[in-house]
């Protein structure tokens, strides 16, 4: 009990705990769509792409850059989806170029203008420290926006994820729905980068969703479970990170992994079988149907 309450006397830990829990929940929630669409590599690429903008935001700490980083992320998200849609082979290469270039730019910005050392590690692996109230506010706003988007477009999102071609002719605006999902994804990555870290965000998109998939065959329940697993990983990971003195992102991911192993042990072969084909890049849901 002591161990749980003790760190709460520090304002920075309280903020860290809120952000970690909410971030875990948000990424777990969106991760369901990302994983089912076989898009986790896009999440991975995107977090690196956003890093350039994120570095600028961190270093110059002006609200103008928050906007800049957000637009940067959304622009790269849409660029990546468009490229990814056009051709399989070219997509990976193009994503590689866009994201690594942006990542390199972020690194360069940090090296040139940042205080070297800890700040850079924090950006890569997440940190409890230096979380401001305005960051919490942004995270809350993005979470609320995500909830509203999914709430009002639940069926459209589900339909385009499961069966885009039939969704298209059933009156669902497939392109618009996908663009919206990419915007939500980049915003979510942007506001969770501080606590999870650039290199580990993609893991938090994947792990809770996979765990949830092992536990259920229902889409609705998978969304709920994945959110819970993400939140628990964030909460527990934050405490462990405090006591172990390691970057928060690493512990959050490790807790998620532990949950995965426990669920695997419980569900066994049945759970494993459910994850077959999950996040398979070779099975894109986007079918080509265009004029010659």
């Amino acid at each position: 009990m002591e161990a749980l309450l003790d760190p709460l006397q520090y304002g920075f830990f309280q903020r860290g705990l809120i952000v970690a829990t909410l971030s875990g929940a948000l990424l777990g929630f969106i991760g369901v769509y990302i994983v089912l669409r076989g898009m986790s590599y896009i999440g991975h690429g995107l977090s690196h792409a956003i890093f350039g903008g994120f570095a600028a935001m961190q270093l110059f700490a002006a609200s103008f850059y928050v906007l800049g980083a957000g637009l940067w992320g959304i622009a790269s998200a849409i660029a990546i989806t468009n490229v990814a849609r056009r051709s399989r082979l070219g997509a990976d290469a193009a994503i590689g170029v866009i994201t690594t270039a942006s990542f390199a730019l972020g690194v360069a910005l940090f090296a040139r203008f940042g205080s070297s050392g800890p700040a850079f590690d924090n950006a890569l692996f997440g940190s409890i420290l230096g979380i401001t109230n305005s960051q919490i506010l942004w995270l809350v706003l993005v979470t609320a926006f995500t909830a509203i988007v999914v709430f009002t477009r639940y069926r459209a999102l589900l339909f385009t994820t499961f069966d885009p071609e039939v969704a298209d002719v059933s009156g669902v605006k497939v392109g618009r729905t996908e663009a919206l999902l990419m915007i939500v994804l980049s915003l979510a990555i942007l506001v969770t980068l501080t606590v999870i870290g650039v290199t580990l965000v993609a893991a938090m998109l994947v792990i809770p969703a996979v765990v949830a998939r092992m536990l259920t065959d229902s889409f609705g329940r998978m969304l709920v479970l994945s959110t819970i697993v993400g939140a628990i990983s964030g909460l527990v990971g934050m405490y462990l990170s405090y006591y172990a003195g390691v970057p928060s992102g690493t512990m959050i991911v490790l807790v998620g992994t532990a949950v995965f192993l426990v669920v695997l042990a419980i569900t066994g072969v049945r759970g494993m079988r459910r994850t077959v084909g999950l996040d398979s890049h070779a099975a894109p849901n986007v079918k080509e149907a265009i004029r010659p």
Partner: peptide
């Protein structure tokens, strides 16, 4: 392998 029940699948198209 998509996680979806029969009822969820039928309902989905009521957009």
């Amino acid at each position: 392998n998509f996680p979806i029940t029969v009822a969820e699948c039928v309902q989905m198209s009521r957009t």
